[in-house]
Computed example of a mutant assay.
Amino acid sequence: MNQEKPIVVKCPQCGIPVVWGEVSPFRPFCSKRCQLIDLGEWAEEEKRIAGAPDMSDSDGWSENQ
């Protein structure tokens, strides 16, 4: 029998090991609680993806110019 070792990742919120598979419905999070904490941080803009600043709202910039 060929049984593969399951992939285990750390919950990005609390660090608890999580099996990456059907047994972990909130993967990569360990629980709904950690999933919602992470979502709240994104919603409150505590987390963001680095990139160029949005110029559309600054200094009167317009696509029509």
Rank of each mutant, 00 (worst) to 15 (best):
D54I: 02
E44M: 14
Q13A: 12
P12S: 07
V9P: 04
V18N: 06
Q35I: 00
Q65S: 10
A52F: 13
S56G: 03
P25I: 06
V19H: 00
F26R: 03
S31V: 06
I7Y: 00
F29S: 00
K5S: 11
C34R: 04
S62H: 09
C30R: 00
C34H: 06
I49H: 05
D59I: 01
V18M: 10
V8N: 05
W20C: 05
P25A: 06
Q3Y: 09
G51P: 06
C30N: 05
V19T: 15
P17Q: 02
C11L: 11
I16E: 15
D38Q: 04
N64M: 10
L36N: 06
C34Q: 02
S56N: 13
E41F: 01
K32F: 13
P28I: 03
G15F: 04
K5L: 07
R48Q: 05
A43P: 00
K5T: 12
P28V: 12
D59V: 01
M55T: 07
K5F: 08
E63A: 08
E45W: 01
R48M: 14
A43R: 13
E44W: 02
P25T: 04
P25Q: 08
W42F: 07
K32L: 14
F26Y: 15
C34P: 04
S56A: 08
E46A: 05
V8L: 05
A43H: 11
L39Y: 03
Q35R: 14
V19Q: 02
G60H: 07
C30V: 09
P6Y: 06
E44F: 06
L36F: 03
I37W: 01
E4Y: 03
I16K: 14
S56Q: 12
W20Y: 10
E44C: 12
D38M: 04
K47Y: 15
V18W: 13
P17T: 11
I16Y: 07
W20H: 03
Q65M: 11
F26M: 10
G60R: 08
I37P: 01
